[in-house]
Amino acid sequence: MLIYIDNISLYTTAQTLSMPARRFLLQEDGQLPPLVWVPAMQRRRLSSFAKMALQVAYCATLQGTSPCPVVFASRHGDLHRTSKIITDMVTEHEISPTSFGLSVHNAVVGLWSILTCNRNEMNAISAGKDSFLAALIETCAYLKTYSVDSLLVIYADQVLPAPYDIYQDEQQADVALGFRVSLSPFSDSSLEENTSIAIELSPSTHQAPSTDSLQALQFIDWLAGEQQVLPIGQSMQWECRRV
């Protein structure tokens, strides 16, 4: 399926990002975005997970001015917040209702809807190591099924907190990635270098090489590089091809 990607926005603490891909970074210093566009009372309640996810969404939609349906993906969700809630339960500490409400997997897109008054459909996905790939597939299916001009993709994950870090089976880094997807070239992008990157996404008969790299970072490195095809997928085989 031919799709067009634009307004790529990336936040990550990963040190393995290729130099060409660094042009997509929100900032080079690895500091969390300040989210000055979020009212202070709401901003202070946000976790680092929510902050990085919301900021890449904001930049990908041209400062929130291009409301559209959303596909959000994360393997673990806001596990740091969830882990603290579980610890509080075990130690019989009082659990914050606000913290509990913001720990659910679709909390980020709920916050995005509220903060930007976006009433479009929003979907939250978790599919293990293939969470980013699942978001791409869901995006293509949505664009083919419904008559919409574009769709916002948000992916976010963080380094696993203790005690869950002993179960890590892939690269550990904070990553948030946002971009818009359409079936036709974009005409409203303000970032010339990000305008309408055309790729073909399709099932493949070739298994992707085994790697512990995060799919979102593999994808961004590929977009910024010169390789023609990106095999991607752990439990399923797909490929991205330059057009």
Rank of each mutant, 00 (worst) to 15 (best):
Glu121Asp: 15
Leu143Ile: 00
Ile137Leu: 10
Glu121Thr: 14
Ala141Pro: 01
Tyr142Glu: 00
Asn118Lys: 13
Phe132Ile: 03
Ala135Ile: 01
Asn118Gln: 14
Ile137Ala: 03
Ile137Ser: 02
Asn118Ala: 14
Ala127Trp: 09
Arg119Ser: 13
Leu133Val: 02
Ala141Asn: 10
Asn120Met: 03
Lys144Trp: 02
Lys144His: 12
Ile125Phe: 11
Leu133Phe: 02
Lys129Gly: 13
Ala124Trp: 07
Ile125Asp: 08
Asp130Thr: 06
Ser147Val: 09
Gly128Asp: 13
Glu121Phe: 11
Asn120Phe: 09
Cys140Leu: 08
Ala134Phe: 04
Phe132His: 05
Ala127His: 15
Phe132Lys: 04
Lys129Arg: 15
Asn123Glu: 05
Leu133Thr: 03
Ala135Trp: 01
Ile137Lys: 06
Gly128Glu: 12
Leu136His: 07
Ala141Tyr: 06
Glu121Pro: 05
Ser147Pro: 04
Phe132Trp: 10
Tyr142Leu: 01
Tyr142Gly: 00
Leu136Met: 13
Tyr142Phe: 11
Ala127Cys: 15
Asn123Lys: 07
Asn120Gln: 13
Cys140His: 07
Thr145Asn: 11
Ala141Trp: 04
Tyr146Ala: 05
Leu133Asn: 02
Gly128Lys: 09
Ile125Ser: 10
Tyr146Phe: 03
Arg119Ile: 04
Ala134Ser: 14
Thr139Asn: 02
Cys140Gln: 15
Glu121Ala: 15
Ala124His: 08
Ser147Thr: 14
Leu143Asn: 02
Ala141Phe: 05
Tyr142Asp: 00
Asn123Ala: 08
Ser147His: 14
Glu138Ile: 04
Ala134Ile: 03
Ala127Asp: 15
Ser147Glu: 15
Glu121Trp: 07
Lys129Tyr: 08
Met122Tyr: 07
Ser131Gln: 11
Leu136Ser: 08
Asp130Gly: 06
Ile137Trp: 01
